[in-house]
Simulated assay, not measured.
Amino acid sequence: MPQLLSPAQLRQRIRSGLYTGHTSGLAQGYVQCNLTILPADWAGDFLRFCQLNPRPCPLIAMANSPGDISLPSLGDIDIRSDVSSYRIFRHGQLEDEVADIRSLWRDDLVTFALGCSFSFEEALLADGLDVRNVSEGVNVPMYRSNIPCQSAGDFAGNMVVSMRPFKAADAIRAIQICTRFPSVHGAPIHFGDPRIIGIKDLEQPDYGDPVSIKQEEVPVFWACGVTPQVALEKARPPFAITHSPGCMLVTDLRNSQLAIM
């Protein structure tokens, strides 16, 4: 069962093509990362974009040099094969989704690993809260919002947000818990009426899957690491690679190492 695998074991199964699904709920206790890979001459502006927008783009690690396929601080990783699904962008347009990028790798590519909300979900579950995408076994719903990011060079656009529904008291508890995890998006950025942040229909997420919302619950929204994909559409670099939404880089870094006690 994938749920019982260590991060290294799960990456090995992904690397060998034996696992191709989303990673929500897997390798519990360990940090999962969003992924952005860019040519070196675009990397500086993207790094600045992350620094200016730490809520949706919390930088966990980046490659030591262009062409480096490893991220030693996160484990024994081959970034070309250790994510279950990659998105390929050319000039800001999504061109393809693939399970392996070894044939596409270039010596000028720079890898960025960004914090993911799957890390704080574990803390919510440990407190007894129902994280709906986990309990329903689906990918978390994600939406394009009207919340603007700060621009850096050609990188710009609005924030993508993820949503989890809670009763009001549980929403307050979720805010308290997630405030301890600024490296993986931190506290929610909005709860309540989704129209205020530009979301018209919660049943139609832009990424991921819809989840059930009970009558007494309110939607709670967090900044989301799919935001760089919107920024790529705006910046239109000639070539870029990201993870597919929900298909994260599973690392050997423990969630507890990111928590502020």
Results as ranks from 00 to 15, higher is better:
Met261Gly: 13
Ala231Lys: 00
Gly246His: 05
Phe166Gln: 04
Ala231Met: 03
Ile79Lys: 01
Pro219Ile: 05
Ala43Asn: 04
Asn139Tyr: 00
Met1His: 13
Ile175Trp: 11
Asp41Thr: 11
Leu5Ala: 14
Phe89Thr: 07
Pro245Thr: 10
Leu26Gly: 07
Asn158Arg: 03
Pro238Trp: 07
Asp68Phe: 15
Arg164Ser: 07
Gly137Val: 04
Leu74Gln: 02
Arg144Ser: 01
Val138Asn: 04
Ser212Met: 11
Val184Lys: 01
Glu217Phe: 08
Ala152Val: 11
Ala240Tyr: 12
Leu59Val: 12
Ile189Gln: 06
Ile196Ser: 10
Asp154Ser: 15
Gly192His: 10
Asp127Leu: 10
Thr227Leu: 06
Glu217Cys: 11
Glu121Gln: 07
Leu26Gln: 03
Ser162Ile: 14
Cys57His: 03
Arg48Gly: 11
Ala123Ile: 05
Pro228Thr: 03
Ala174Asn: 07
Ala123Arg: 06
Ile101Phe: 10
Pro58Tyr: 06
Phe181Ser: 01
Leu52Cys: 11
Asp154Lys: 10
Leu124Asn: 02
Phe155Ile: 13
Val184Ile: 14
Ala156Lys: 08
Ile88Asn: 08
Leu94Asn: 02
Gly208Ile: 00
Asp201Ala: 13
Gln150Pro: 03
Arg144Val: 02
Gly21Lys: 03
Ile197Tyr: 05
Gly192Leu: 13
Arg180Trp: 01
